[in-house]
Computed example of a mutant assay.
Amino acid sequence: MTTDPDRSPRERMVHSAARMMRERGVTGVGMRQIAADAQGPRGSLQRYFPGGKTQVMSEALDVAVADFSAGTRAAADADDLPSAIAIVVDSWRRVLLDNDFGAGCPIAALVVDVSESEPLRVRAHDRFEQWRRAVASIYRGFGYDRARAWDEAILLISAIEGAALVARAGRTVEPLDAVERLLVDRARRGHAD
């Protein structure tokens, strides 16, 4: 339940939707469930979110992505690329462990559940691109050219997304550990690949 007294009922609803989306996907979350979880006024749903579920899920995605991007932001200050990669992967490992493997990637949840909603699909694509730019910037900071950094960024993101999914299914962080080892080894070899 999201009952932070410092947040307005509307903010609590968006934060509840973000958490619930990571846990259940988009189709597993209803507007009434969001209001109940946030202890918000159910009668105000239409006033707060005139765009309905699409609006609340779009806003929830932004909140969830902000939570998930902490590792990428911290990695930008790493001393070397292997350390940066380890920081990004570890942030995902901590999310899985802290949530007993119950929370996954909010962007993936959106893509999987709302393929029929073009606005939400576009929003998910934009957030993946935002993440890719941030990761590519880290690679650029360690000497990779623009094209190679862009490719390495999608490799890292795709590997983490896949590993997180497998980790949730198996309730083990071993897939993330393996991805980290392989990506760190690749980074240590440098630009030669």
Rank of each mutant, 00 (worst) to 15 (best):
N99Q: 07
V56N: 05
A103M: 09
G143A: 13
M21K: 09
A124V: 06
R146H: 07
A163R: 03
V184Y: 01
R24N: 15
E180G: 11
R42K: 14
R121D: 06
V65E: 10
S83M: 06
A36I: 13
V112W: 03
V135R: 02
L176I: 12
V88R: 08
I157L: 14
A103Q: 13
R24H: 15
L120M: 08
I34E: 02
L155D: 08
M13S: 13
R24A: 14
V29G: 09
F101H: 10
E174I: 14
A164I: 05
D4A: 11
I87F: 10
A60F: 08
S137Q: 15
R148S: 11
A124M: 05
E23R: 15
P41A: 14
A103W: 06
V184F: 04
A159H: 05
R148T: 12
G51S: 09
E152M: 13
F49C: 07
A147Y: 04
V65L: 14
A124R: 04
M57Y: 05
G102C: 01
R189G: 07
I85D: 06
R12Y: 08
R32W: 01
D145E: 12
R73W: 07
A167V: 06
M20W: 03
S91Y: 00
R127W: 03
A109F: 01
R42V: 13
D145V: 10
I160G: 01
P50F: 01
A149K: 00
E116M: 13
S91E: 00
A35K: 11
F68P: 00
T27E: 14
D4Y: 11
R171F: 01
R148W: 02
E129I: 04
S115C: 08
I157S: 12
G190T: 08
G143W: 09
D151R: 15
A38N: 02
R32K: 06
L155W: 04
A164Y: 00
C105N: 10
A153N: 07
R171S: 09
D67P: 04
F142I: 08
S16N: 05
K53Q: 13
A187I: 12
D100G: 07
E59H: 07
L176Y: 08
L61I: 10
T3G: 11
E59D: 13
W150H: 05
V26Y: 04
D193H: 12
A108W: 14
S83V: 10
E118S: 11
D77Q: 15
